[in-house]
Amino acid sequence: MPTRKPVAAYPFTQAELWKRCLDLQPALDRDATELAARGVTAARIAAFKADTRSFGTLEPDAVLVQEGAIITEQKTAGQASLETAMQQVMALVAVRDSPRTGRYKRFGVRDVSSLGEAGLFLGAALLVKQGRKYLPEYAVEGLTEAMLQTVEACSAAFLAGLAERKEAENTRSTATETRLAFANRLYAQLVQLCAAGEALYRHTDAVRARQYVVQPSGGAAGRSGAGVAPA
């Protein structure tokens, strides 16, 4: 059975969640004695602080997106290099044989630019194989072993780029889900601590009670000490 991906349980951005957790900590320290009487222990507050620090060390999605974009750019450059190397070989073949002939088609590549990622890699492998087989026939047109080696090297680099991009996509997906699940747990702690503090001062100190509002900026969560997560 597939694992269900986590869904955000907090009503604001992760950056706002982190800031709110940081902003709450001075009030928790100040009111630690009173909160302890309501079951909010020092260990619980310490755990909340530790989780807040840990959450701040997680890489934001924007960083992972840019890292993925760099890998994609590198893959695109690698694909262009491979296509160019293959086209240079086929251009020499075309000097001797028309693209409509069987002799040209035996190299397995008719239109390099129309090949997809998988087709490009397979086409390069076939081109190198056939190029070496018929190298003596096309040497007079300028085909060399060095050119075939260039195709081979570009093909290997292109394949490595595809693997690196896939790994980056998987890494980003895992990191995003991990950060989201962590944020949900942190938000649950925030809601519970705010509820305890707001209840403590609701009828005795309006200023302190407001310091325990989950989302002080307003909105549905901001009007309740417990906070309201979106469905």
Rank of each mutant, 00 (worst) to 15 (best):
M1Y: 08
A8T: 03
A9V: 01
A15E: 12
E16N: 12
E16M: 11
W18C: 09
Q25V: 14
P26E: 12
D29F: 03
D29S: 11
R30V: 11
D31F: 00
A32F: 00
A37I: 00
R38F: 10
V40E: 04
T41D: 07
T52W: 01
T52F: 08
F55C: 07
T57V: 08
E59L: 13
E59I: 04
E59P: 09
E59F: 08
V63H: 04
V65W: 13
Q66A: 14
Q66F: 07
E67R: 14
E67I: 06
A69S: 12
E73T: 15
Q74G: 01
Q74C: 02
A77T: 13
A77G: 13
A77S: 14
A80Q: 04
S81A: 13
A85V: 08
V89K: 03
L92D: 08
V93E: 10
D97V: 06
D97K: 13
R100V: 12
G102S: 05
R103T: 09
K105I: 04
F107P: 00
F107I: 03
S114H: 11
S114C: 10
L115P: 06
E117G: 15
F121A: 13
A124G: 11
L126S: 13
G131L: 06
G131H: 00
R132F: 10
K133C: 06
K133S: 08
Y134H: 15
P136R: 09
Y138H: 15
Y138S: 12
E141Q: 15
E141W: 04
G142T: 15
G142E: 13
T144M: 10
E145F: 07
Q149P: 01
Q149I: 02
T150R: 09
C154M: 07
C154P: 02
A157F: 04
G161P: 08
R165E: 07
K166Y: 06
E167D: 09
A168R: 05
E169H: 02
R172Y: 08
S173H: 05
T178M: 09
A181W: 01
A183I: 01
N184T: 01
Y187Q: 03
A188S: 15
Q189E: 08
L190D: 00
L193P: 03
C194V: 02
G197S: 10
E198S: 09
D205N: 08
D205V: 02
A206H: 05
V213P: 03
V213L: 12
V214C: 03
Q215C: 00
S217W: 07
G219Y: 09
G219V: 04
A220I: 11
A221R: 07
A221M: 06
R223Y: 05
S224N: 12
S224D: 14
G227N: 00
G227K: 02
V228E: 11
A231G: 06
